[in-house]
């Protein structure tokens, strides 16, 4: 009964930073609350109407120096906290390349997690300790939020767009995975667990195809599955065939590289761009090409899109096909 926690586990580098920030603000908060309450108490007792033995002469009407003090003091403190917190936020929610990529799809009412080697799991997330993890979230229906209190990170899973966060687990163990954006009837059952494992264990777990998850056999890697879907949906008839580059831009090596569009605009060919270009290819046509590709809106699921993008990403380091020359 009396053995219950009052703080969440601190299981990531980011969690440590945020905890520091949290407790500093909390310290300030407690200081102000105690100061205000104590001052009120002392003043109420001392200047109670029945106490005639107290000097009430010349009560001040206002005092500019005092006002400036308690205007500027909170302002300066607030600014310090602001910069600290904003910097920390930028570090965690800016995508980076060196992290292990994991994709989570939210749907009413479960989390569907996809590892880069193709292992899938539902309402569970297995990750190795000591390595930056980038979780990208998206939703299939309503807005959910992917919350990992032990790591102090959270991101809304918004339908139609990717959001991501980066954290580096420092402790092994089992932690909560929660949905924090209200999403309907079984909102409170949209929960799961995060298992942080030693890198070796994680490797074994991956190779076993995620024991204890819904996939029984050793899975194909995400890129391989992507390649399969690439064929299934007929993408390869244009993008894969020899001389394809005449009709469509080469996919090799374009991932996260800047490209120029037909209208002269320059964009980075990142996951968000790829997703849009699969669902609605005409939106951003690469310079020098015609709008020939059919739209896959309603054809490709979020799950399939993720795999196709993984496949295209695997072509990242390949040299652009020489066919165009």
């Amino acid at each position: 009964m009396w053995n219950f926690p009052l703080v969440p586990p601190t299981a990531a580098e980011e969690a440590l930073h945020i905890s520091w920030l949290y407790w500093v603000i909390t310290g300030m908060a407690i200081f102000f609350v105690v100061a205000v309450c104590a001052a009120a108490l002392v003043l109420v007792v001392r200047y109670r109407a029945s106490n005639e033995n107290v000097n009430r002469d010349n009560p001040p009407e206002s005092d500019m120096r005092l006002e400036m003090t308690w205007t500027l003091m909170p302002l300066v403190l607030a600014l310090v906290i602001f910069f600290w917190a904003a910097k920390l936020y930028a570090d965690i929610y800016t995508p980076r390349d060196d992290a292990l990529e994991i994709i989570a799809i939210g749907k009413q009412w479960m989390w569907h997690v996809q590892h880069s080697n193709g292992v899938r799991e539902n309402n569970e997330l297995h990750i190795p300790v000591g390595r930056p993890i980038k979780v990208t979230v998206i939703s299939q229906d309503v807005i959910h939020a992917f919350s990992l209190p032990a790591f102090r990170v959270k991101r809304d899973a918004v339908p139609g767009r990717y959001n991501s966060m980066v954290f580096t687990p420092t402790k092994t163990g089992k932690f909560h995975l929660l949905c924090t954006e209200y999403c309907g009837t079984k909102h409170s059952e949209m929960i799961g667990s995060v298992y942080v494992m030693e890198p070796d264990d994680y490797q074994k777990w991956l190779e076993s195809g995620g024991k204890g998850t819904d996939s029984s056999s050793a899975p194909m890697s995400l890129e391989d599955q992507g390649k399969q879907i690439f064929t299934q949906l007929g993408c390869n008839t244009c993008h894969g065939a020899a001389g394809a580059a005449v009709r469509c831009p080469p996919l090799e090596g374009i991932y996260e590289k800047p490209i120029e569009l037909a209208n002269g605009q320059k964009v980075i060919a990142d996951a968000e761009y790829m997703r849009e270009s699969i669902l609605n290819p005409a939106a951003k046509i690469v310079k020098g090409y015609d709008n020939l590709m059919p739209a896959y809106q309603g054809v490709a699921s979020e799950d399939q899109i993720i795999k196709i993008i993984a496949y295209i990403k695997s072509l990242k380091d390949a040299k652009p096909a020489e066919a165009s020359k």
Binding site: N280, P281, A282, A283, N291, A295, Q297
Partner: peptide, 9 residues
């Protein structure tokens, strides 16, 4: 023509 090319419009 544009709609034919790009039904997403």
């Amino acid at each position: 023509e544009a709609v034919e090319k790009n039904p997403a419009l």
